[in-house]
């Protein structure tokens, strides 16, 4: 779906933000990218839909080189993006106008725009709010509208660039539920950039970045069981993984897995 080959990037002040990134995101997968501030994860994400172009190396979206200006619409429609600040990414004041923005830009027929708006809003469970003003929505609802606005391009991949960072726990849970449903149910490829380890633990694959490089890449279980390394990168592991690690029970990632592992350890020492 998305492939990068030896991608390097630096801003005009010369600081190198990405160093030789090689990455292939498979269609239908759910990948999380984690890393400290300044690790290059957001810069990498902006390469996936041609918001940034590599200084050297190449990025391919559905096999199209992102430097191919003539096919910009194809690239951006294939890889929809949701940003961090729910207020800053909204163009329109009314929910359905917001969702219609991308198909309008693509110059689609009115009936087709209508169909896409309705379907996208339904996919994120916001169809009841179509005619509502977005100013009165909660943070989680705004981000779901932003997801719908990207879905209206009928993308194959959805990139969430720290989209949960400004939400409260309820809003985060709401957005995570929505994107997991889209990933499982609609076979949408999801790339989630996040600071929250419990969100990354829900992905199929966790990519850890540090200093502009990919330093770890694997299943959440594999990545989060290397507690020492994760900590040395200034990141956390989910508490369940931490407890399991401290007790010498590797491999537990969720609450239930941790409970079962401890149950196994303690044997029958119940009251």
């Amino acid at each position: 779906m998305i492939k990068t080959e030896n991608v390097s990037f630096s801003y005009s002040d010369g600081e190198q933000v990405l160093k030789n990134i090689n990455l292939a995101i498979e269609k239908g997968s759910f990948a999380a990218i984690i890393g400290c501030n300044g690790s290059g994860k957001s810069t990498a994400a902006k390469h996936f839909n041609a918001l940034l172009l590599p200084k050297s190396g190449a990025v391919y979206v559905k096999g199209i080189d992102t430097r191919d200006e003539k096919r910009l619409f194809e690239i951006r429609s294939a890889a929809g993006m949701v940003f961090q600040n729910p207020d800053n990414q909204m163009v329109a004041a009314i929910v359905e106008d917001e969702v219609a923005f991308a198909p309008e830009n693509l110059g689609l027929e009115r009936n087709e725009i209508r169909r896409r708006v309705d379907e996208s809003l339904r996919a994120v469970g916001m169809e009841e709010y179509a005619l509502k003003s977005s100013a009165h929505l909660s943070g989680g609802q705004k981000q779901r509208v932003a997801v719908a606005a990207a879905l209206a391009m009928e993308p194959e991949c959805l990139i969430l660039d720290e989209s949960t960072a400004m939400l409260d726990p309820r809003g985060r849970a709401e957005l995570m539920k929505t994107i997991k449903k889209l990933n499982r149910g609609n076979n949408l490829t999801v790339i989630l950039i996040t600071h929250y380890m419990d969100e990354a633990a829900q992905a199929d694959r966790v990519i850890v970045m540090d200093g502009g490089e990919i330093v770890m890449d694997g299943t959440p279980r594999a990545v989060f069981s290397d507690v020492e390394k994760i900590r040395s990168l200034g990141l956390d592991v989910p508490q369940a993984a931490e407890i399991a690690y401290e007790l010498g029970l590797n491999g537990a990632l969720t609450v239930d897995e941790c409970v079962n592992a401890i149950d196994g350890l303690l044997g029958g020492a119940r009251r």
């Binding site: 918001l51 429609s77 929809g80 993006m81 990414q89 909204m90 923005f101 991308a102």
Partner: peptide
């Protein structure tokens, strides 16, 4: 931010 969000949705 808004400009990036508009670019990402094919605004030209």
């Amino acid at each position: 931010d808004l400009a990036a969000a508009m670019d990402a949705r094919c605004f030209i």
